[in-house]
């Protein structure tokens, strides 16, 4: 049960960070969304061996984290979730692309290793940009901005519902797990023979609970087409921040420092 408690805490940790009052938090969600998108586009547009030209982009997460007063550990833990997928994608390069790219003293670096490092750096930068966006922008502002940008409502709705129902599902799992544990005769884990009915029950309870939450949302004016918040105008600081990040991303993309 403590794991589920921990997961719930994790789920709400970014919400707690997004409620901050720093300069970055106060920026318009549109400016932050566009900055993150352009930054990610610039990062992924680099070639497979462009490890060194990508390194100056590390300025973005580190400067933003410092300005937004976000602890590095919280975001790093989440970046690590994507690590196995990237390792899986990049490891084959190490074995199949063995041509020497350069040597560092007596260590030979192959193109395969270089491409693996590039994949990992691209992943780190892109995931950090997305996490920083979420950690500095309240969720409702983010989805309201997506709706205003005419992002398909189905996409935004799925995004919203997944976010809300993940917590609901965890809570239902906790209740069922507790009920199971109390009558399991001291067994610590869910037995395989009970797994089917447990997961089935969880699914049905999850549906039922989700229906009630959706009804509560509808009762307070929620609809798929609602654009909830009256738009806040872009201020000078928003435009300057956006311009600075776009310019820096573009300059580093076309002017190679390494």
């Amino acid at each position: 049960m403590s794991n589920i408690h921990g997961s719930l805490g994790e789920l709400h940790a970014l919400d707690a960070l997004a409620a901050g009052r720093t300069t970055v938090h106060r920026l318009h969600p549109l400016a932050k969304l566009c900055s993150a998108l352009i930054f990610i586009l610039a990062v992924v547009s680099f070639g497979r061996y462009d490890f060194l030209p990508l390194t100056p982009y590390l300025f973005y997460p580190f400067i933003l984290m410092a300005l937004a007063e976000i602890p590095y550990g919280i975001l790093l833990k989440r970046v690590l979730v994507a690590l196995p997928f990237c390792l899986f994608a990049g490891l084959s390069n190490v074995f199949f692309d063995r041509e020497t790219a350069f040597t560092l003293g007596s260590v030979t670096i192959s193109y395969g290793v270089l491409s693996l490092l590039t994949i990992l750096l691209k992943m780190y930068l892109s995931v950090m940009a997305a996490l920083l966006l979420v950690a500095t922008t309240p969720f409702v502002e983010l989805t309201a901005q997506l709706r205003r940008l005419r992002v398909p409502m189905q996409f935004v709705t799925v995004f919203e519902m997944t976010y809300r129902y993940a917590g609901v599902l965890l809570l239902e799992t906790r209740s069922m797990g507790m009920a199971y544990a109390l009558r399991s005769g001291g067994k610590r884990a869910l037995e395989m023979r009970h797994m089917g009915s447990f997961v089935g029950g969880l699914l049905l309870r999850g549906f039922d609970r989700a229906e009630r939450i959706h009804a509560a949302m509808r009762c307070r004016g929620y609809s798929l087409r609602t654009v909830p918040r009256a738009p806040r105008p872009l201020r000078g600081a928003d435009v300057w921040a956006l311009a600075a990040i776009v310019t820096a991303s573009a300059v580093l993309r076309f002017v190679r420092l390494f």
């Binding site: 709400h12 809300r164 609901v168 609970r209 009630r212 609809s223 909830p228």
Partner: peptide
Amino acid sequence: DDQLFMPDIFEDVAFGPRNLG
């Protein structure tokens, strides 16, 4: 618990008024 689904109470209470635009 069916009615409170936002990260904090302020956001939850604000949910309806925001939907009113």
